[in-house]
Write a protein that binds this DNA or RNA. Structure first.
Length: 102
DNA sequence: CGTCTGACGTGGT
DNA sequence: TACCACGCCAGAC
């Protein structure tokens, strides 16, 4: 397990219901500003194992790339409202504290 | 080792 | 604002 991976997991677990983060934002917060793709990989691999809130991670445009699941539905029932298929990141984006302890 | 891929992000038009 | 091309990085074959 890499430090980056552990940090990503911690950060994801720190996203409260009703908020979202972007892939790049999570990566940057974990120490790899260009690691958005790695965050994707982690979600693919670890989301079930570590029970990560994968549905609270979206792209920087506020859109959901998945059409395969009910990500939008999950967010909406947490209180994240969609406008024209997009989330207003200026409202719902979550900024993790500097240190996610755990 | 080389090539292709992907739940992304940024800059130019 | 919408669309295209490129860069990025690790994993799979």
């Amino acid at each position: 397990m890499n430090v980056f991976t552990e940090r990503v997991i911690r950060i994801l677990q720190g996203i409260p219901a009703g908020h979202v983060m972007t892939y790049g934002q999570v990566a940057a917060a974990a120490g790899s500003p260009r690691g958005a793709r790695q965050v994707v990989r982690i979600l693919h691999s670890m989301s079930e194992k570590y029970q990560l809130p994968w549905h609270r991670v979206i792209n920087i445009k506020g859109e959901i790339s998945l059409t395969d699941g009910n990500q939008q539905e999950l967010l909406e029932m947490e209180g994240v409202h969609f406008k024209n298929g997009k989330v207003d990141l200026t409202v719902y984006r979550w900024f993790p504290p500097d240190a996610e302890e755990g």
